[in-house]
């Protein structure tokens, strides 16, 4: 077994709303290994971002982390005090978001912001400048000297995301969480960012948790994949295994809904119905109402993640062994 950088066990995040308690993240468990890129995919509202926010303990009211453990570097992050957690964020776990403009301070220069993070650690200014300078070069920013003096609004969207990646890597985090890092960018820019992330993971060796709705990104960069649906992690496996042998009916349908054909070749698969209301207490599988191969027990008992092939986990009654099919 390779070393785990982070081990998430039974993480639960609840939102207390007027309509009831919404289980946005419901007993989610997975781990990320050293130097690995783990992709969490799913559609809007499936809980993928909330899982990341839970790991970072950035859940705001009315949300609460109602259970679970997040083991990182020999401790449980959920038991740390607020002050201790602040030291983990940015230093040990870095995070980048979809819109870099929200994360960059508009009134400070790029260089100033990058150096600030380093100087918190009592690093002197000269050294911080050198590290920031080298890092910007590593993230392929041209004309670094003048870019250090630019403000965020003066550079393009793709460049801003490069700056964010650089800013996070400056402090050599063990884990980098990237929440939809390329969703706001053009495909041509996206391809460059993905290529950059692929190069940097080799150089810096940080493990990466990438959150995306785009299977193309998963195919391009991930080593392992976790698929989420309605707050549950329903399938986990190596990337080629997931693409070649998706087991969960939801994963299969989702892959067939991707436009990979022309209209002459056929029609895209659709998934009937909509995501269930997570505020309602329900028995059984969250996907049961939309599942084309729903069994009676799917409405009674919630399936758990079980290993269906080596390293491939799936939460579906259909996969729980042949005997169940007969019943």
């Amino acid at each position: 077994m390779k070393d785990k950088v982070i081990d998430i066990k039974e993480l639960c995040v609840d939102f207390h709303t007027q309509g009831g308690i919404v289980k946005a993240v419901d007993h989610v468990s997975f781990d990320i290994r050293k130097g690995e890129v783990f992709a969490l995919v799913g559609e809007s509202g499936c809980g993928k971002s909330t899982t990341a926010m839970g790991i970072m303990q950035l859940i705001r009211s009315p949300g609460t982390i109602s259970g679970g453990e997040v083991h990182f570097e020999g401790r449980d992050l959920l038991r740390l005090s607020a002050a201790e957690m602040t030291k983990v964020r940015g230093r040990e776990i870095g995070m980048i978001f979809q819109n870099p403009l929200d994360s960059l301070n508009p009134v400070y220069t790029i260089g100033g912001q990058m150096m600030e993070g380093l100087m918190v650690e009592k690093m002197d200014k000269k050294e911080a400048y050198q590290i920031a300078f080298d890092m910007l070069r590593d993230v392929k920013i041209s004309d670094v000297e003048s870019r250090m003096k630019s403000y965020p609004h003066e550079i393009s969207g793709g460049m801003r995301q490069r700056v964010m990646i650089g800013m996070m890597l400056c402090r050599n985090p063990k884990l980098l969480i990237a929440d939809e890092p390329t969703t706001a960018l053009d495909v041509t820019i996206q391809a460059g960012i993905i290529q950059l992330m692929n190069e940097l993971r080799q150089k810096y060796g940080s493990a990466v948790l990438i959150i995306t709705h785009d299977f193309g990104i998963v195919a391009d960069i991930a080593d392992r994949v976790g698929v989420m649906y309605a707050g549950n992690l329903i399938e986990v496996g190596e990337v080629t295994e997931i693409f070649d042998h998706p087991k969960h009916p939801y994963t299969r349908l989702l892959m067939k809904a991707l436009p990979t054909i022309t209209k002459e070749e056929g029609r895209l698969e659709t998934i009937k119905g909509t995501v269930p209301n997570l505020a309602e207490e329900r028995q059984g599988c969250n996907f049961a109402d939309r599942c084309p191969s729903c069994l009676p027990q799917c409405r009674e008992k919630k399936p758990v993640l079980l290993e269906v092939a080596s390293g491939h986990l799936c939460a579906c009654h259909l996969e729980e062994g042949g005997s169940n099919h007969a019943r």
Binding site: V187, Q190, I194, G216, D220, T260
Partner: peptide, 8 residues
Amino acid sequence: SSVPPLHP
């Protein structure tokens, strides 16, 4: 060529 691949 900047379109992400369909398969790993």
